[in-house]
Each structure stands twice: as structure tokens, then as C-alpha cells.
Amino acid sequence: MTESINLFPLFLSFRVALTATLFAFIIGIPIAYYLNRSNGKIADILDTLITLPIVLPPTVLGYYLLVLLGRQSTIGRFLEETFDMTIVFTPTGAVIAAMVVSIPYLIKSARSAFAGIDPSLLNAARVLGRSELNIFLTITIPLAWRGIAAGITLSFARALGDFGATLMVAGSIPNETMTMPIAIYDALLAGNRELANILVIIMTAVAIIILYIINRLEKRMTKGTG
């Protein structure tokens, strides 16, 4: 019985989701900031592309990632030849898949947090002699951080729960690329009800905690700071 409860998928899932969220944050915040400041054609197109992962089935996304990053693709071959790095059927692939499905949530939240800042505050800071970077750090981020934090939490939840895209890109190699959602499916197929139940309970608990955090953040956001 003890050998049937293998918690590797749990730890892998958290590692993958955390790494994916970190990269989503680094890439997403500048995009959100840019999207909030400009309303040109390029911004519109970018916005559409960014939203696509919410609407597309995860398997379709996974398929695109396979085509784009697979060993036969230009990028895949380049990575393999120069860095000896493969993406498909590795944890790296799982991270990329999780990031792509989760980044829209972070960008959307951060963008509306930026948009919620009264422009006259930024103008006041400019007139008071501060540089744009300084204003971003002292005004924009402190006023938008709750929205950004909500976005981070939401995108972490989405990354943690991804099934389709991860399965397509990283596969389901036990003790290597098998994340929690895939392990649940696998356990069920193998008739291991006990393992499936434990994993399902863990996932549910995590989801509830995440929703609670987001709720708290949003409530405080409407109350305002100070």
C-alpha cells in the first residue's frame, strides 16, 4: 500500500507551477504595463494573442507548442544543437506549457490594476519632479500590487491545474514529467482509488486556499489603502 502513494507528482506540480508563475510575472508585468499605456493597433493584436490561451482548448495550445518547440522545429533544433536542451517530454516543457496557459490571467489582472490608477496621480508625481521609472516604483506598483498579487495567485492556480497542454508537451513519464492532474487521471485508470482520492483532496484544498486569498485581496482593494 505504501508504494502506491507516491507524492512525486505533488512536488513536481508545485515546482512547475512556481517556476511558470515566476516567468509569467517577469514577462507579464511589462506587457500589462505596455498594454495599459498604449491603445494602438499593435497593442490590440498583442492583447488578442495574450487572451487566446484562455479561449483555446489546452490540447490545441499544446499542439502549437509541440510544433513550435519540438525536436523537428527550428527553435527545438537550435536549442538542442547549441545548448543540448530538449523541451518536449521534459519538466522544462511542463513549465513552458503551464506558463502559456496561465500568463493571460496575470496580464489581465495587472492591466486592470494599472488602469485603475487615477492618471492625475501620475501627472502630479511628474510635476513634482519624479522620473518615469521612479513613478512606476513609488506610485504605480504600490497602488496596483493587490491587483497584481491577485493575478499572480490566479495564474499560479491555473498553472498548477493544467492537464491538457502539459500532457501534450511534457507527456506523462512517471517520476519525471507526471504532474498532479495527470497523476490523478493515471491513478484512476490504474484503479488506484486511494491515490486518486488523496491527490484530489490536496488539489481541492489548494484551490480553496487560493480563492480565499484572492477574495481577501479584492475586498481590500475596493476598500482602498490607508
Binding site: D118, S120, L121, N123, A124, A125, R126, V127, L128, G129, R130, S131, I139, P142, L143, G224, T225, G226
Partner: peptide, 28 residues
């Protein structure tokens, strides 16, 4: 704007909501 040395009091005052009175006044 930051180099013009012009004071601007906005219609809605544009006080920074996350800063105290002291911090607001010190900002410039």
C-alpha cells in the same frame, strides 16, 4: 514636466492614497 519647477494643484488634489500627509508633502 519634472524639470519645469511648476506647482500644479489638481482639481481632485491627486494626493497619493498610500502615503501619509508627511510622505505626500515630502514627495517633491
Amino acid at each position: 514636466a519634472k524639470d519645469r519647477k511648476i506647482g500644479y494643484v489638481f482639481q481632485n488634489y491627486a494626493l497619493f492614497p498610500h502615503m501619509t500627509v508627511e510622505q505626500n508633502i515630502e514627495f517633491g
